[in-house]
Amino acid sequence: MSNSATFDFSARAKNTQGITRRETPLHHVTHKNVDEAGVRFCEASFYAHLTLRGNPENADFVAGVEKVLGTALPLTPLTSRACERCHVFWIGPDEWLILAANLSPGEIETSLRAELTGHFSVVDVSGGQTLMTLSGRAVQQVLQKSCGYDIEAEFPVGKVITTHFAKATVVLHHQVEGSYFMVVRRSFADYVWRWLVDASDEYGLSVSE
């Protein structure tokens, strides 16, 4: 196996003067990239993650969320919506996960709180979990051997499932053909990463920023 490059995750610990040092859950590991990689991994660092709960039968709640996020709430089980600002995943009948790359979680939370009234809950969970993206020609095989879920037959583009990945609970999203989002708890991130290194070994793994 030719090891062409070393990927240093430690670049993902931001230590700007005057700002609190921020570390992604995988900032501490390194990896030697393979030339012909069948699986491509990226830790999408410092996304805003928010858990939103509310009654989907409350029209004011649904309309208010749509106004703030710029996209309607996915009300059908296991579906997702995306717009330029964020991704919204269906987690349960009254629970959604909001992911945003370029917005601060505080910004989203403040605007949701300003818009919504009555019985709802919005919690910033950005520090508690991380987003991994997986792609490459062999990514489906790696997911198939890690999940009990029928990835091949039951997982079209746009679908979101919460399931087991190598015994860890993850939120899996088929983002575009052959590319997946995986939301993992911070405490499981290192374990899932190590599992992925092992599971991807036969196809070759490369890591990118």
Partner: peptide
């Protein structure tokens, strides 16, 4: 309890 799914 769908503990590793929708948690319902």
């Amino acid at each position: 309890y769908h503990v590793s799914g929708c948690r319902r």
